[in-house]
Simulated scan of single mutants.
Amino acid sequence: MTRILLTGATGGLGSEVLKYILPLVSPSDLVVASPTPARVREAWPNLPAEVEIREGDYTRPETLPGALAGIDVFFILSYPSIAHEVRVRAHKNAIDAAKAANVKRVIYTSIAFGEGVADVMKPHIDTEKLLRDSGIEYTIIREGLYIEAFPFYLGTLCWSSRTLPAAADELAGFFDSSRDTDVYVPGDGPVSWVDRAEVGEATAHIVAKGLFINETVLLSGSSNNVLTLAQLTEHCSSVLNRSINFHVVSEDEYVEHYSGTAAQPPRDPAFVRSWATAYIAIERGECAILTPVLEELLGRPPRGIKEYVTELVSVTEGALAQYAK
């Protein structure tokens, strides 16, 4: 019997991993850890009773020995913080606890940027090194950019620290057919977009079947799903039947646009400049690398991204809130 500990089961990716791993393993072999176990029960009212739910929080190391007791495989979903040091410290806590608990294998979710241009990638690079140096068997999953998040890359939100209702309002504004929209980005290039649900499904197979031991694996889309931000904007414009104007501007102009006095609301300039580095990476082609792994794990071609975007821009304002999470 191999006991598997999953984290993030109430979030976007983690919930998909749990959904798709349930048919692959015995429920008695699954343990779910959460900072708030009651939330797991609320989110999963029909979860098999054999699945054990434990308290476990990367930011509270004292909770991790109990969460990891008797665990063979530990799925570490990346900690949701934009602060580099906070994120790496949380991951280090999890890896150190896994080593102390004699966990045999750790699977970590990284992202599909290259080696250090994008600030958002840097905590993942640090975590990947910690994991490789830990002496534990590992699998690092670099996930392609989620198509669900494309409005963020078109500048509508810029991953600010605003509340979810405000985020949903702004996303709804982007899709508001009564007005034009201008998109400003500091760089553009091809992106191999992926569907988060399909990444979760593929990840479940990796976790359950012990695949890619001591390897870094890339889950990226197919060649049909490689689109630039300009092409995505053009597609949205066509679906919405209105003009969306796409502008590639300098980094300084980008920062001024989203943090200056005219911005509604203005964001922190340091954060906007940091986020701009993601576009440098995109422009360099870091997010356009193709591999067949996702399709092989799914056993079918990945979902068509243009069709997915068409569905997304047609949903109601209430449904948009889930994409701001």
Rank of each mutant, 00 (worst) to 15 (best):
M1P: 14
M1G: 14
T2P: 08
R3T: 15
R3I: 11
L5T: 07
L6H: 13
G11K: 10
L18E: 10
K19T: 15
Y20T: 02
I21N: 00
L24S: 03
V25D: 06
V25W: 05
P27N: 03
P27R: 04
V32M: 04
P35L: 01
P35H: 06
A38L: 06
R39M: 13
E42N: 12
A43N: 08
G56F: 01
G56H: 00
D57R: 01
R60M: 03
L64E: 05
L64N: 06
P65Q: 01
G66T: 04
F75M: 06
I76V: 15
S81H: 03
H84Q: 06
V88K: 01
R89Y: 05
A90Q: 03
K92T: 14
I95S: 02
I95E: 05
V103Y: 11
V103I: 14
S110K: 13
D119A: 12
M121E: 13
D126M: 00
R132P: 01
E137K: 12
T139G: 12
L145Q: 12
E148S: 12
L154C: 08
L154H: 10
A168H: 10
L171Y: 15
A172L: 04
A172Y: 09
S178G: 14
G187S: 10
D188M: 09
W193N: 02
D195H: 13
V199L: 03
V199C: 05
G200M: 05
H205T: 02
I206H: 07
I206K: 07
I206R: 06
I213Q: 10
T216V: 15
T216G: 13
S220I: 04
G221S: 08
L227P: 02
L227R: 09
Q231V: 02
L232K: 08
T233K: 02
E234Q: 09
H235F: 09
H235G: 02
S237Q: 11
V239N: 01
F246Q: 00
H247S: 05
V248C: 11
D252S: 11
E253W: 07
Y254F: 15
V255D: 09
G260L: 09
T261G: 08
A262E: 13
Q264A: 06
A278P: 00
A278E: 09
A281H: 03
A281D: 06
I282A: 10
E286L: 05
C287I: 01
T291D: 03
P292F: 08
E296K: 14
E296S: 11
R300K: 11
R303P: 00
R303Y: 04
I305T: 02
E307C: 01
V315Y: 01
Q322N: 04
Y323I: 05
Y323Q: 05
